[in-house]
Design a protein around this nucleic acid. Structure first.
Lengths: 350, 350
DNA sequence: CTGAAAGCGCTAACAA
DNA sequence: TTGTTAGCGCTTTCAG
């Protein structure tokens, strides 16, 4: 491991000169620059990241706080991570993954105080999230992927749930659907203040009442079994439903399965729209799912880019909402008939 | 940000004493230790990671090299990452994610030479992988998740594909299946030297010929469409097939869809086993898939733990193979009849 | 059992 | 345009 001293000696210049050709913070004659670069190449020189970090008080590392929740890691979350990693890498930064959840506030304080990370991106932000306060205290630059209830003075990128839900509802209503049921995350998740669950719920109510329709909603555990149970419950509450809007990536296949069991054809009898879903997942179903495609990796990338801009002072707070894009595939079609097709009457299990 | 000097001053001891109570590398009287700890608490002291790293020449960061391939990130890969992150975190290490693929050898050399990481875990290892050589040159401790062809002197953890395939074939043959088709990754992926594709192929041939059966194999693009095409091709080559063994997580739903279109019931007409699959994915299908469950997060964890043992010298090379576990769900059942059910004859599209 | 001081490899005044 | 040097905050000899 050659050091800067070695380079300086070989190039017959002082260490500071070597440093300056590296950082470009002061003019260097072409001749000496050439000599230095040559020496660096000759010695296979790479600056030591720790030493540079200590001197500059900047690690060129950003943290991605990624709680490993019961909800697990869906395609959307994975896309955040890869998008964030790519953006950091492109800017010459490193991305450290920390599995720090809302519970580990002490771990978080430690991470922030060790000055190992120049800034932090928070995933899975709760409506009230203790991590935000801790991070603000320690003064670490911060960007949220998601939103707390009060976002003044905070940077965030998030999905525009309101517009996303509205587009989804518009799509279904435009196809003539009136009895639309919304399958959300679990009651526990909602109670825990999981933003997407809360916001989509409110947006759904607003969109449906805007159309003069009743906003039917069912929570579902994050599993296929949860989806099946939810759909069964929905069929009981609203046997005449013709469309389901599913927020829950993990439950969606259970919903489809239960529909299949009940011999309700998709999309013939029931149209299905999957919310905040990656194309990969949507394509897994047959027919492929009409879905609101989440801007997953874009969110990760934008978050990190905003964070880096905050770091070099070339940007202040950045607040941005990106809607999911409606991608019509095979799981939606015009509603059959307004009000008199109670085909599945009294067939509770199939 | 209090420094060690601040703590020393407040506790009326020297900096070295503070350092020693932190590292525990030399005896300290209880009295002074108490004073020091008190001062640290008072000042909210946290050691500076960069400074410590510079002095010890250890960053307490390990890198996870995670190429973002065309193949994308399945549940199994995601589980590696979370398992690795958890293991690192448990040991007081940080995990940096680097999206460095087999192509970016220069980036890799840079990362390794900057001494920002104490060690590296490599994901998505190819049979011949240039990254291994580069890392060995730079002397960075290394563990592979996957294997190259020559593993002498290397640490790795990998799936025991041989045993996994054998168990899957045993399961199907035990159910009376004789015409079993193996759906692999794409031809391009195989040509690129993707280990799992190569190894399972070889193991499948061995297992089938061991039973005196013909090893039917079809490649599939990593998508639902690829799965559909592959199954269609398989039905042409072997109209009498009664079971499919699918290596390709991304193609599996396409395979199921094509079977549905062709009115071949699962498992009634065709049994399906999904290889190297997470329970979450297996449960998405209806019926839920009999699958060889990949030990995803265990692999990530074991890899990092082995790496850390190499770092403190408490462990040499570690080579370990973990088989996937057979989990019988609803997609397999005894074969219908030996040799005369050509139901789907001449129904190319449905 | 404790202190003083020399680095770790780099950056950035300060001086020329 | 270049060199000298004082740190950055910690670990770890070397002395006591």
């Amino acid at each position: 491991m050659a050091t800067m001293h070695d380079v300086a000696r070989l190039a017959r210049v002082s260490v500071s000169t070597v440093s300056y050709v590296l950082t470009g913070t002061r003019p260097i004659s072409d001749a000496t620059r050439a000599r230095v670069l040559e020496a660096m190449a000759e010695l296979d020189y790479q600056p030591n990241a720790m030493a540079r970090g200590l001197a500059t008080r900047r690690s060129r590392i950003v943290g991605l706080l990624m709680p490993m929740s019961e909800r697990g890691f869906g395609a959307t979350e994975t896309a955040f991570v890869t998008g964030a990693a790519a953006a950091a890498s492109d800017a010459g930064y490193h991305l450290v993954l920390s599995p720090i959840g809302a519970g580990d506030l002490d771990d978080l304080r430690r991470l922030a105080s060790q000055r190992m990370v120049d800034g932090v991106a928070l995933m899975e932000v709760q409506i009230e999230d203790g991590r935000v306060g801790v991070l603000q205290e320690t003064g670490v630059p911060l960007v949220l992927i998601g939103r707390t209830s009060d976002t003044t003075g905070l940077s965030y990128v998030d999905i525009d749930f309101d517009q996303t839900v509205r587009e989804a509802v518009d799509h279904l209503v435009g196809l003539g659907h009136r009895r639309i049921v919304y399958v959300n995350h679990s009651a526990a998740t909602i109670a825990a203040g999981y933003g997407p669950a809360l916001r989509t719920r409110d947006s759904f109510v607003a969109a449906m009442t805007g159309y003069g329709l009743e906003p039917l909603m069912i929570p579902a555990e994050d599993s296929a079994a949860g989806g099946r149970a939810a759909l069964a419950q929905a069929m009981t509450q609203a046997p005449d439903l013709t469309a389901v809007l599913a927020m829950n990536e993990n439950a969606i296949f259970g919903i489809l399965a239960e529909l299949a069991v009940r011999r309700r054809a998709v999309p013939g009898d029931v149209s299905v729209v999957s919310m905040v879903t990656s194309p990969a997942v949507a394509e897994l179903a047959y027919p492929a799912l009409t879905a609101m495609t989440s801007p997953g990796s874009a969110l990760g990338r934008i978050a990190v880019e905003a964070l880096l801009r905050q770091l070099d002072g070339t940007g202040a707070h950045h607040q941005q909402l990106l809607p999911c894009a409606l991608e019509v595939r095979g799981s939606t079609c015009p509603a059959a008939r307004p009000d008199n097709e109670l085909t599945g009457t009294g067939l509770p299990g199939g």
